[in-house]
């Protein structure tokens, strides 16, 4: 098959398996793209890394309790562990001299190490269900099945619901913390909401791209989007579209060649969007340089006249 027949086959949506993967990654991509805006604006970019690494022990404990690889139980375990990570980072930097960046790295390595130990114990326990738990490390986008989709759609709905209900609150808290304080909006509520959304989207998002690459899915889309607009609502939409588009392209590339992994390609495309925006958007480096040059030549020609 050549490229165009592959292309037609892929985008005619005949194949249910491909459709499941495509819908699954797109829904997750859009969800993470939305949450990404909150992450970048509240400068929580690196705490995502701690959360996603912490999800590993959560998933292991979820599996140890239930003995089955049900995505719902595993995600609940992951969310609990993610919340523990947020608390740990906060606690360490609150009660000691240890700075926030160090406490993020501490929580990350402790919880991930714990996860690897648990994983090892599970692998030696002889439970035949355990095979595939390591897929969480690098994502398992290619194996998304219909029952996974319901979970993803539920999370998507939840994120949209929370965002709509608390839209004004979050907007004010993110763009003008001082004003938010003056009018008595609870900072704890907004911080808690953001952390909660990050934890939820991380716990399910790692199913497509895996633990290590998860932070890209929650950092890059908004970093790219915020180069194009300053408007909160527009940023959310652009960021969501970047993430969805990357997911579609990532799935397509891995469909073209059996050797190509889905998750990493989603991230490469997404980072491509972010770097492209940094260079060529209205606020981009190259655009600014070009405009400066054009202004210069304009001024010169004016003077000559």
């Amino acid at each position: 098959m050549d490229f165009w027949s592959d292309f037609l086959y892929f985008f005619s949506f005949q194949d249910t398996n491909i459709n499941n993967v495509l819908i699954g990654t797109s829904v997750l991509g859009f969800t993470c793209g939305i949450v990404s805006v909150l992450v970048v604006l509240s400068k929580k970019a690196l705490i995502v890394d701690a959360i996603s690494h912490a999800v590993l022990p959560g998933i292991c404990i979820g599996f140890m309790f239930t003995g089955v690889k049900n995505p719902i139980y595993l995600s609940i375990g992951g969310m609990a562990a993610g919340a523990a990570a947020v608390y740990l980072v906060d606690w360490i930097s609150r009660i000691s001299r240890i700075k926030k960046d160090a406490s993020i790295a501490i929580s990350l390595s402790v919880l991930f190490s714990f996860g690897v130990i648990l994983l090892n114990i599970i692998q030696h326990s002889g439970n035949s269900n355990q095979s595939g738990l390591t897929d969480f490390l690098f994502g398992k986008a290619a194996t998304i099945i219909e029952s996974d989709l319901y979970l993803f759609l539920a999370v998507f709905t939840l994120v949209i619901f929370i965002l709509t209900v608390f839209y004004q609150h979050l907007k004010i808290a993110l763009f003008d913390a001082g004003f938010a304080k003056t009018i008595g909006l609870s900072e704890r509520l907004s911080q808690g909401l953001i952390s909660g959304l990050v934890i939820i989207s991380t716990a399910v998002g790692i199913q497509t791209v895996g633990i290590i690459l998860m932070s890209a899915l929650l950092i890059s889309p908004a970093s790219a989007a915020l180069f194009w607009t300053n408007n909160f609502k527009k940023a959310i939409l652009i960021s969501g579209s970047f993430a969805t588009l990357s997911s579609v392209l990532g799935v397509f590339i891995s469909f073209l060649s059996a050797d190509m992994p889905t998750g990493p390609w989603i991230i490469v495309v997404l980072s491509g969007f972010a770097l492209f925006s940094a260079f060529f958007s209205k606020k981009g480096i190259i655009t600014k340089k070009l405009r400066a040059k054009m202004d210069d030549s304009y001024n010169l020609s004016e003077k000559e006249n």
Binding site: K43, A45, L46, S215, I219, S220, I267, S271, A278
Partner: peptide, 19 residues
Amino acid sequence: GGFGKDSAIGIIYTLLFAI
């Protein structure tokens, strides 16, 4: 490049790791 320090780290190391 107009990226925050956190975002720059997050984007570059994931990109390189993915590659």
